[in-house]
Simulated scan of single mutants.
Amino acid sequence: MKREPRNGSERSFMELAGKCAVVTGASRGIGKAIALRLAAAGMDVLVCARSEHQSDPNLHGTIVETAEQIRRLGGRGVAHRADLADTADVRSVIDRARLEFGRVDVLVNNAVHIGFGSILEAPADELDTALAVNLRAPYLAAKLVLPLMISQGGGAIINITAPGARPAPVEPAPENAPPSPFRFPIHPGYGISKIALEAFTNRLAHETAPHAIGVIAVEPQFVDTEMARWLLRPDFDASGMHSPDLIARVVAEIARNPMAHSGEVVSAQDFAA
């Protein structure tokens, strides 16, 4: 039976009611906001991440807490611990969703690995980890979920990318150039993997178009999350940062009609405006 949205302000998301989603990296930040927004629209949501128990004093939030908040909204929230660098764990996420829900209508690949250090400083396998979590896991999750979506007659695969995927001009830094906003240098594997994720989004969209499955990359800018606050320098002006819920609202809106933007890299801020 199709459920009504659970909040009067969510009536525009009525098409999502009664459907099911998987959101990776949903213990906190953008992933958690997306999971709760989809749940408020009437969806059941499986949330996965490594954070099953609170262990990091700098980063609060667990998938158990997210699932509980989904249940408070009246939906079914399932917490599933997974290390997405591990192929078996990626498979277990989709298997669990199939077991719990019998279907997956929306897959949000949000989990991310951000490495630190320059090419000279960081070990070579830092690139391997970035590619495993930020590219191979979304690739494999999509591959595993597609048969379900095809049998259902459609769906949405939404990949969360990053402004770090955009090539930047190489210019000598002026003497009075402002310092990097980050406390630590971000490893280039992060940007490399996000560029590849955007290319994958477009190529997969061509493949899934005949099945009414939209594949979209959503690009946030600076988002006010605990991770961002930890990464940014203490003197960084955070007044222009966006809330995780803005990204979540964009994802939910795109999920309503994914074919309208399939194959695109959508700027969350521009879309919201």
Rank of each mutant, 00 (worst) to 15 (best):
R91L: 03
I34F: 08
A35M: 11
A40Y: 12
S51K: 04
V90A: 15
G77T: 11
P57D: 12
H60W: 07
L36F: 09
S55G: 02
E52C: 02
N58Y: 14
T66W: 03
L84F: 00
G77H: 04
R37L: 00
A40F: 14
I63D: 04
D95H: 04
R72A: 10
V93T: 12
S51C: 08
V64D: 06
E52A: 08
R72D: 12
V64I: 07
V93E: 10
R37W: 00
V90T: 09
A33P: 08
L99D: 13
P57C: 12
H60T: 13
V90I: 12
R71G: 15
S92V: 02
A79T: 09
Q54G: 06
L59V: 04
V90S: 12
T66L: 05
D95K: 05
L36S: 08
I94L: 14
H80V: 09
K32Q: 15
Q69D: 15
R76D: 07
Q69V: 04
A85H: 00
S55L: 14
C48K: 09
Q69S: 14
A39G: 11
V45W: 08
H53R: 15
R76F: 02
E65Q: 13
A33L: 10
E100V: 09
E52T: 06
Q69R: 14
R37V: 00
C48W: 06
V90Q: 10
A97W: 03
I70K: 07
Q54T: 05
V93P: 08
R76V: 14
S55C: 08
D83L: 07
L84K: 01
V45L: 06
R37M: 09
Q54M: 08
E100L: 02
I63S: 01
T66Y: 05
A97P: 00
A40K: 15
